[in-house]
Design a protein around this nucleic acid. Structure first.
Lengths: 199, 199
DNA sequence: CTTTTGTTGTAAGCGTCGCTAACATTGCGA
DNA sequence: TCGCAATGTTAGCGACGCTTACAACAAAAG
């Protein structure tokens, strides 16, 4: 898929991203070793550095792919929904689907610090922004006459609730506490109802 | 503080935990190198392995310290509050204080996977449980006649919202979106109001 | 068609890391 | 006092990210 014949390798850059993405999905960011990737692609251990400044730059590209996918899932969810309220709910579900369906990728997406956004590649920044806008749009559409501050506040707190719940679950932090009358699915429903409800 | 004279080192185990905790606070979990710690304590690079199975076991101990501190902060917050509602709010604020005041430690506390809790040290598990119970107690006290499921649900979603917000902020994920009419402090107030309000 | 130039690859090696094995020292309890 | 378990050391293995110096190649320039 990425191996055109004739040249040294074909498209090593794309092949590296694909291989890294596969490794991330399998075992999260820490499962990616540049030396491993190079060897599995039949290339020397120094070759990746012709295409990426360092390990982090490659992983950022994988994270960008994740955000691009998320944005696409948002669009699909909103296009298929009958009304803006349902669209918002489906958008949130798309987030959950990505998080629980591909936990390695999800962790990668939020592992790379964007605190100093200067050194992050534009592909990651723009993909992350695109995903944010998908969320923001859904919240806006569900309540068009709300003022800007309220919409932003509800977008952020809603995102935070979903994200926090996912993080805690995947970190095993709710292991002993979610038993008895609570189930994960039930809790998710409650979160969707409450979080995406009124302003 | 941890160096009694006379024996080989005194109390290397405690010294390692203290040094690791300092390193974690300064630069997060990834800033901890067993070789570094050993050298800075004037001990060989193999010495730490007499006290900890591996690097992770040492870091788990640091995380346990963090949870113990958190539980203590919860108790203080609840003891000083005039009524259960205020106690709940102060408890949440204690969480935020730890997260934003000691981000390295906070990251460490949630970095070690507890998914397979079997291999985690009991100190970490019990400290984490103690912290959870501090939260749970605050939610219960604020609304004593609520049923068990509701209390648990509200504890978890409240925790998730706080935790998610912190995670997103510290990862730089809200960089471009929290501007304009929103400030971080304002958002926190809104989160505290909404999250800890009704059932 | 040849030459030049810039891109993409390789080989070798540096420094760091976590961790282990074999051996030395120390203090405590029998 | 002596033996033993606990705690330390030296040396080294294998893996890692990354760099430097050099080689092959494709495509543009002559």
């Amino acid at each position: 898929m990425a191996t055109q014949r004739g040249y040294h390798h074909g498209d090593l850059r794309a092949a590296l991203i694909a291989a890294a993405a596969a490794a991330v999905e399998a075992g999260g960011p820490e499962a990616v070793s540049l030396r491993d990737l190079a060897q599995s692609l039949g290339v020397s251990t120094a070759a990746p550095y012709r295409h990426f400044l360092d390990r982090r730059a490659l992983l950022d590209e994988v994270a960008a792919l994740g955000f691009a996918e998320l944005a696409k899932a948002y669009q699909r969810a909103q296009a298929d929904a009958p009304d803006p309220q349902a669209a918002l709910r489906e958008t949130a579900k798309a987030y959950l689907t990505l998080a629980f369906g591909r936990p390695g990728l999800f962790r990668m997406m939020f592992a790379s610090d964007l605190v100093d956004a200067a050194d992050a590649p534009t592909s990651l920044l723009s993909a992350a922004r695109e995903a944010w806008e998908g969320l923001y749009h859904a919240v806006t559409a569900a309540d068009p006459q709300a003022d800007l501050a309220s919409v932003k506040r509800r977008t952020i707190t809603g995102w935070a609730t979903l994200h926090g719940f996912i993080t805690l679950v995947q970190g095993g932090r709710l292991k002993g506490f979610m038993t008895e009358p609570l189930s994960e699915a039930e809790l998710l429903e409650a979160i969707l109802d409450k979080t995406l409800g009124e302003g």
